[in-house]
Amino acid sequence: MSDKPKTFAEQFYLEDASFIQRLKRDVRLLHFLFMTFVMWVKSRKVRTEFQRCRASNEPFYVDRFAPPGLNR
């Protein structure tokens, strides 16, 4: 099996998939979207901090952030 990470399209856009495969895909996609939502909810403080930095002339660093990502 290849080690190449699958792209978003390769993971979620299935060709000739059976009902079960489509169901699994839907569950995984919902999970990914939910994780994106969770990331957004948790980042309320980050948004406030960004606005504060903008107003007070302080730098705002993004190094610490990571996208939700996906398990291969």
């Binding site: 990470p5 978003f8 979207l33 994106t36 980050v46 952030f65 990571a66 996208p67 939700p68 990502g69």
Partner: peptide, 30 residues
């Protein structure tokens, strides 16, 4: 624009792009 990956150089900026969205924009994207 590669949220499913965490290993690309501009991932932090990409993540913040999503974090910074207001709810209406995030909802459209989801």
């Amino acid at each position: 624009h590669a949220l499913w990956r965490t290993d690309f150089p501009w991932a932090g900026m990409n993540a913040f792009f999503i974090m910074n969205n207001p709810w209406e924009l995030l909802w459209e994207a989801l």
